[in-house]
Amino acid sequence: MMPPGHIRTPAYLRGKTGWIERQLGPFGNPEQQAYGLLGDKLTLYRVRFTMAEVWGDQAERPEDTLDAEIYEHWLEPA
């Protein structure tokens, strides 16, 4: 999904599977706050991915990892 607006979930991670490193928040939803609206409070998660999952065969070293903060509405159980 690529909505044409202010999104804090990087495109390179969309559709990828990771695991929760820790839970953070709640924080206001930037997709509302960016437009002068009061942001709904959302749980933010630090999600860890392997480079193999993110980049496939192009991974520099598959076992290295990448952590990013992702708001709850961009996550689904895997």
């Binding site: 607006g5 202010h6 206001g28 930037p30 706050q33 960016a34 437009y35 002068g36 942001g39």
Partner: peptide, 12 residues
């Protein structure tokens, strides 16, 4: 007066 998200949105 604004949020950092509002600033980023304007730049984007």
């Amino acid at each position: 007066l604004f949020t950092v998200d509002g600033l980023r949105r304007a730049i984007e």
